[in-house]
Structure formats: structure tokens, C-alpha cells
Simulated scan of single mutants.
Amino acid sequence: MTSAAAPILLEARGVQKHYGKFVALGGVDLQVRANTVHSVIGPNGAGKTTLFHMLTGNKTVSGGKIVFDGHDVTHEPDHRRVRRGMARSFQVTSLFPTLTVRENLRLAAQGVAPAGAHDPWHPPFGRRARAEVVHGVLKRLGLERLSDTPSSNLSHGQQRRLEVGMALAARPKAIFLDEPTSGMGIDDLDEMKDLIQGLKEEHTVVLIEHNMNIVMNISDTITVMQQGRVIAEGKPDEIRSNALVRAAYLGNMITGGKA
């Protein structure tokens, strides 16, 4: 199935976010198709992260509607959206630094079912250990040999991969990744790019990313934002050749191949 024929998993209709008189989002429309990589790009302050907050329920909308997997989730809190199949990483790495890689993933897997997630009276044995899920994610991340290492001892690139893994451990339908390659060295970029591209076999990926080489290589659809509004949307080749996009944001970056 081509990306154009895939069903729509997530739809935003006229989503707005106001902070007093400041308009962070001025009516954003977005359609994300299942099992695709859909990237959202734009200059700093364009509203990309604010849009992520609205889509994932981290903050409340000022107007508009959000539909996920056939459900109106516009006014649902973030923890309910997680249970519907949304998972998210953030710009700033957010891990449990003193816990091992395995324990970070276990907690993420347990968090989907909050009733049994926080039980200090019983050790995480049996089904509560989520061993099968954790093992599968460790293998996918290439972090099996580091499973018993505290997350604070990982390299920056490994920590960023682990954070993606924590989103995966929730077994989501859609994964929202906010600048997952931020601060990465060249050696880590290819591994992260391959990881994200492979996710769409089983998940839908919504990506904020400033590295244009990665965006152009792995995206099925790209939405370009400026000043809280969508100014263009299309396939990578269409965005690369869009004069309005180049003038507003990309300049010579995508024609010269530099991020």
C-alpha cells in the first residue's frame, strides 16, 4: 500500500492555541496517514512543538478539533491519548538516570496500564516485568549489551535511542518524535535515521526534525510551518522545489544538501 492510499490515523482541523493575545497556532490542518513518516518542519518559533503539545494532549487547544484512530480526542488529557495509542519523545532527553536501560523500558511498558504501573509492594516479576516487550525493544535499539547499564552512563546518542525505545515500549500506534537527533554526532545519525525509518513497518511516525538530510531521506510527507500556520505540504521532492518554502525557511539548505 502506498502512503497516499493508507488510511488517515490522525487528523487536526483548524487547531488553534492562544496565549493571551499571542497566537501560537492560527488554525492548523493536518492529516497523518497510517504507517508513514510525516515530518513537520519550519524555523524556530513556527509552532511545531506547540502543535505536538496539542496533538498529544500535553496542553489544551484554544480551538479546532483533533481526531485519532476514529476518536475525537480534542479535550482528552495526555494519559488517555497514551492509552489510545500515542507515545512521544521530547526535545530534552527525559530518562530515569539512576535506573538501567532495561528498567527504563519496563517502566514505560508498564505505564500504559496505570492501574498496575505503580505498585511498590510487589517486585516486577512475571507479567509485570513486561519482559517480552522490553527484550524486543532492546533488540530493535541495538542496546542489548547495555541493558543493565544505568541510563546516565550511556552516550548522548544512546540516550536519544533509549528515549525512542521508551515510546516504543508503550506499543503505540503513533510515535511523536521531537528533534530525536538533537545534539547527536555524525556516527549516531545514521543509526537513528535507520531506526526511525524502520518504525513505520508497525507504527506511524510524526517527526519534528531540523536535519534536512534526514527529513528528505525518510519522510513520506512533509508539512512546513511558519508563524503558527501551515504554508506547504507534500512529498520531499515537492517541498524541495517549492519556492515559497525555500524563501521562508530552507534557503539553499536542501538544494546544497546541508542541514
Rank of each mutant, 00 (worst) to 15 (best):
L199N: 09
G198E: 05
E202C: 04
R145A: 15
S219Y: 11
H203F: 05
L154W: 07
S152N: 14
P150E: 07
T204G: 11
N153Y: 10
T223C: 02
G198R: 06
G183E: 00
H203L: 01
A170T: 15
P150L: 04
E179W: 03
R145E: 15
S147Q: 15
I208Q: 00
S182N: 10
S147L: 05
V205F: 05
T204D: 12
T221E: 13
I208A: 00
L177Y: 01
D178T: 08
D190E: 15
T149Y: 03
E163P: 08
V205W: 05
I214P: 00
G185H: 10
D187T: 10
E179Y: 02
Q197C: 10
N213R: 14
R171S: 15
R160A: 08
G157A: 05
M166V: 11
N153W: 05
E144R: 06
P180F: 04
A169E: 06
L146E: 13
P150A: 11
P180R: 07
M216V: 00
K193F: 05
L168K: 09
M166D: 01
T149H: 07
L146N: 09
L162M: 11
M212F: 01
L195F: 08
H203K: 09
S182Y: 00
L154Y: 12
K200I: 04
I175N: 02
A169F: 04
G185I: 11
T221F: 09
N213G: 15
S147Y: 01
M216I: 00
L146M: 13
L168W: 06
E144H: 01
L177N: 02
S219C: 09
L177V: 01
I186F: 14
N217R: 14
V164S: 08
E191S: 15
L168D: 07
N213S: 13
S219H: 04
P172V: 01
T221D: 14
M184Y: 03
I186Q: 13
A174Q: 06
T149K: 12
D178Y: 03
P180Y: 09
F176Q: 01
I175K: 04
N213P: 01
L189P: 03
A169N: 08
L195A: 07
D188L: 03
G165I: 05
D220C: 09
E209C: 06
K193I: 07
G185S: 15
K173G: 10
I208R: 00
R171L: 15
I218L: 13
A169S: 14
L195R: 09
K173L: 13
L168H: 11
R171V: 14
D148A: 15
T221M: 13
I186R: 13
L199S: 08
M166L: 07
M212A: 04
L195N: 08
S151I: 03
